[in-house]
Amino acid sequence: MANITAAQVKQLRDMTDSPMMECKKALVEAEGDMDLAVDILRKNGLAAAAKKAGRATNEGAIGAYVSENGTLGAIVEVACETDFVGSNPTFTGFAAKLAQHVAETEPASVEELLASKMDGETVEAALTELIHIIGENMKITRFAVRKPEHGGVSTYIHMGGKIGVIVEFSFEKPETATTDAFKTFAHDVAMQVAATAPICAVREDVPAETVEHEKSIYMAQAAESGKPEAIQEKMAVGRLEKFYKGVVLNEQEFIKDSSLTIAKYAEQVSKEAGDTIAVRGFDRLARGEA
């Protein structure tokens, strides 16, 4: 039997909002496996949706860039030691400039980005110089570039750089990117991604292992009802549909108007713009998260 510590019990309780004794029982049953213990609590109907735990505490900022014609964009995370530096205009200005460089050069990795030239010197040299000027350790942690063949992009920076989002849209007419209707819609969708942290834009992009994992939880919950298997299956499928509506961007309720989903909102804007607009994908970087 695994030796379960008080710290493990507290961690599980913080992650799930479940009673302490139930957390201990789940950890014992799971032999100390935290992820398995969360599943046990969920199957028993005791756990709230598991909170993300163990987030990195790095400070920093996320910079964003979108080209003038709205068809190319990037976001990049630059980490530092303190929140004070993370909000320093020199630091945030560097992050924004770096985002433009990332968009225009499309590096394959952080290492390639560091070795690339920006204003006549390598990005690594520019970062080292900034470290010397500000007097705090810094590093470029990750980035995302979006360049749709037929469509546009929108970015949104939340809480002074704590969360950065870039969303990719498809449409047929190049002029759609510059219409007020699209710009408002694109901004709203980027804000939605920042606020709700969906998994993906469309149902088909939800990883198969995630779907199977969730369905196994719902089947176990339905089995507790004692109802016939056919009913249990329907119960599980119903819960899976609810799961999709929570994590798939296009199926989420629009936070500014609950009578609309994001997909329905896209249909409305398409009619207004005289084009077919759809949300195709996004990247969401939350500062300090892996």
Rank of each mutant, 00 (worst) to 15 (best):
V85E: 00
I166H: 09
A186T: 02
S154D: 01
K97A: 09
E172D: 13
A194P: 11
K173M: 06
M159W: 10
T176D: 04
S170H: 12
G135Y: 07
A79K: 11
F91V: 14
D188H: 14
A186F: 13
E175T: 03
A144M: 08
F91K: 12
E175R: 06
A126I: 00
H101Q: 05
V123Q: 07
V153A: 15
A195H: 05
K139C: 10
S154N: 04
A95R: 12
A79P: 02
K162N: 13
H132W: 11
F185I: 04
P198Y: 11
A177F: 14
G120N: 01
A103K: 04
T176G: 03
T82V: 15
I131R: 09
P174R: 10
F91T: 02
V145T: 08
F84V: 07
K183D: 07
K117W: 04
A197D: 03
H187V: 08
P107C: 14
A96V: 12
A96W: 12
S109C: 08
A181L: 01
E106T: 05
E106F: 15
H158K: 11
V145E: 05
A126V: 00
K162Y: 07
S170L: 03
T105E: 10
F182E: 09
A96L: 07
R142Q: 12
S116A: 02
D119Y: 03
T178N: 06
V202R: 04
T90R: 15
A195S: 08
E111V: 14
I133T: 12
S116W: 07
E104I: 15
E106G: 06
E121N: 09
L113P: 10
L113E: 11
E168W: 14
T128W: 14
A125R: 14
F169T: 13
E106H: 11
F171L: 15
V202H: 03
A186I: 08
L114H: 01
T105P: 05
S154T: 05
H132E: 08
A194I: 07
V167D: 15
